[in-house]
Design a protein around this nucleic acid. Structure first.
Length: 618
DNA sequence: TGAAGGCTAAACAGTC
DNA sequence: TGACTGTTTAGCCTTC
């Protein structure tokens, strides 16, 4: 059908005196349809045979044109040929004009041949997997830029080459448009972009036809209007001779490459050759399409990258000699219990149950923890990274809340961090164990299965870490966070790392030049909290945030305790949890820990802690 | 290579 | 009695 369409287009164009430009646009439009089909449905993509057939048709057309242009036949169409018999005597001038016209037509035919070959080449590349053709959106009209379906996967050189095709260049590097005798042929030159321009208005997606393109993204993607305005307005500003469309003495207008010795000449050339007219406007539209296609391609490549990373990092069947795959041992161990522990009515997660994906690999917004440390890793490593580099929990999760909520992704945080976050998210800053469970399952799809494992881990962490305080309540026991303990624990981890400590300013303590890790670690304590989309009410979030800021922000910014230093987020009035007196020995080896016993003199504790930390930093 | 941190698994006791 | 909760220990892995 597409072949018929192309053939029909050629036939129609052959009947027209102005057939070349019509042929070009129509053919390219047909090519655009081909491109769409190839992008959207590979089964219907234009085969090489079809292209060859099209090419043959084109050659036939060339021959037909040449026959029509034989001496005596004139340049007229068959219709006009009937009316004007070659009986009349031609003048010398008429003969010269005829010869020139023949050459022109022949050049146009050659150009079209080149375009066809280019398309065929690109299709072949696509077929060989060298190009990825996302193709325009369904229903999107054939626009000039879309006459170049493979451009989305093109290299800049290929795009430039295609641009030459579109703009009528056709020649390789060094071939100016003028060389082809096309450039100065007026509105009907080469590719009648004005015609295509009108076709762009038929797009079912006008927004796509004229996408908002950042003119800074691609230097060549500037509209002529903007260019001229910029020229006029900033002529004095550009005394340095810099212009996005000018570089290395060459006009960078797509498909131009005219040599301009100096900037003034370039401006003159720009005003003369790329003035605001239909052609420039059409070229700008084409460039918009190019940018749009590139953006689409970029997004697709990005998705592909994420998929690749997800595949490489989370493959449970990754060949390992060890019975426990290195990556996400916890996930694997959980997976083995999946059939019995997975609730049947859980929301379906986008990933396979046996192949959870790391947020590093699959999250739409790759967390910073990825860095270079996202190699296959076990939980310990990842979690240590999350602590070490001190990713802000909420800042890491909040943008990906829906992702964690729906995707079977293990959050890159320790259980302790998550438990703390759960408690901080609560209205009363205290949660029962069951509520902590609920927070886990509600917030992370990953924790909707293998409950026995992670629940055990939660209980284990609650009991293990002194920062979690069990408070007897009327209705039972609730768990709270002893922020002091939590921070001490974090500080210990950070101060205990010489590599981190050595970069810290000694005189400032938590000063302005605070090490990024420590700063982020402290920032984690002032989380805006996670519950943005579905968690705690915003007011509560702000409250807790403010509270945390009150206790910790002053450390981040000024390096000194503010006079109104607020106590830890939650200091349980009833301290039920019995802690051994020698708690500092095993769990808090650093000097900071001397303040671990929930002293009411919190300010003193903090000062002491800061002082100790500063000393440690020295 | 060892220490440390983190996770999983399991055992055990107490409570509901 | 069984489930749940809380504590403790052990083993493994990874990072430093």
């Amino acid at each position: 059908m597409m072949q018929e369409s192309a053939t029909e287009t050629i036939s129609n164009s052959s009947m027209s005196q102005n057939g070349m430009s019509t042929l070009s646009s129509s053919q390219l439009e047909a090519g655009s349809r081909d491109g769409r089909s190839s992008a959207g449905d590979t089964s219907s993509e234009v085969s090489t045979v079809e292209l060859l057939h099209l090419q043959q048709q084109q050659a036939l057309q060339v021959a037909r044109q040449l026959l029509l242009q034989q001496p005596g036949s004139g340049l007229k169409s068959p219709k006009s040929q009937d009316k004007h018999r070659p009986l009349q005597v031609k003048t010398q001038q008429q003969q010269q004009q005829q010869l020139a016209a023949q050459q022109l037509v022949f050049q146009q035919q050659l150009l079209q041949m080149q375009q066809l070959q280019q398309q065929q080449h690109l299709l072949n590349m696509q077929r060989q997997g060298l190009l990825s053709l996302p193709g325009p959106a369904p229903g999107q009209a054939a626009l000039p830029g879309q006459t170049l379906p493979p451009q989305a996967g093109l290299s800049p050189a290929e795009i430039q080459q295609l641009w030459k095709d579109v703009t009528g260049g056709g020649g390789g590097g060094g071939h100016n448009l003028e060389d082809n005798g096309i450039k100065h042929r007026g509105g009907g030159s080469g590719l009648d972009l004005s015609t295509n321009n009108s076709s762009s208005t038929t797009s079912s997606n006008p927004a796509k036809a004229s996408p908002p393109i950042s003119h800074h993204s691609i230097a060549n993607g500037q509209s002529p209007v903007l260019n001229h305005r910029r020229e006029r307005d900033s002529l004095h500003e550009e005394t340095g001779g810099t212009h996005p469309l000018y570089g290395h003495g060459v006009c960078k207008w797509p498909g131009c490459e005219s040599i301009c010795d100096d900037f003034g000449q370039f401006l003159k050339h720009l005003n003369n050759e790329h003035a605001l007219d239909d052609r420039s406007t059409a070229q700008c539209r084409v460039q918009m399409q190019v940018v749009q296609q590139l953006e689409i391609q970029l997004s697709k490549e990005r998705e592909r990258l994420q998929a690749m990373m997800a595949h490489l990092h989370m493959r449970p069947s990754e060949p390992k000699s060890s019975p426990k795959p290195l990556n996400l041992v916890s996930s694997v161990t959980m997976s083995k219990n999946l059939p019995s522990t997975s609730p049947p009515n859980l929301p379906q997660t986008p990933t396979t149950p046996t192949a959870p994906i790391t947020p590093m690999a699959a999250m739409p917004q790759v967390p910073s923890v990825l860095g270079g440390a996202n190699v296959p890793s076990m939980g310990a490593m990842r979690r240590r990274h999350s602590d070490k580099y001190s990713m802000s929990l909420s800042s890491e999760i909040a943008p990906n809340y829906e992702f964690y909520k729906n995707a079977d992704v293990r959050p890159p945080f320790t259980y302790a961090t998550l438990i703390r976050q759960a408690i901080m998210d609560s209205a009363d800053m205290q949660l029962t164990l069951n509520e902590i469970y609920s927070w886990f399952t509600r917030t992370f799809a990953y924790f909707r299965r293998n409950a026995a494992t992670w629940k055990n881990a939660v209980r284990h962490n609650l009991s293990l870490h002194k920062c979690f305080v069990r408070v007897e309540n009327v209705k039972g026991a609730v768990w709270t966070v002893d922020e002091m303990e939590y921070q001490k624990r974090r500080s210990q981890k950070i101060t205990g790392s010489p590599s981190l400590v050595k970069n810290l300013p000694s005189s400032l303590g938590y000063g302005t030049a605070l090490n990024a890790s420590l700063q982020a670690a402290l920032a984690e304590t002032s989380l805006p909290l996670l519950g943005t989309p579905g968690g705690s009410p915003p007011t509560l979030m702000h409250m807790t945030h403010d509270e945390l800021n009150g206790s910790l922000d002053h450390l981040d910014t000024n390096g000194h305790s503010s006079p109104g230093y607020s106590p830890p987020v939650h200091m349980p009035s009833v301290h039920v949890k019995e802690e051994p007196l020698n708690m500092d020995d095993d769990d808090c080896p650093m000097s900071l820990v001397t303040t671990a016993n929930h002293s009411p003199e919190l300010d003193d504790d903090r000062e002491l802690e800061e002082g100790n930390l500063s000393e440690d930093l020295e």
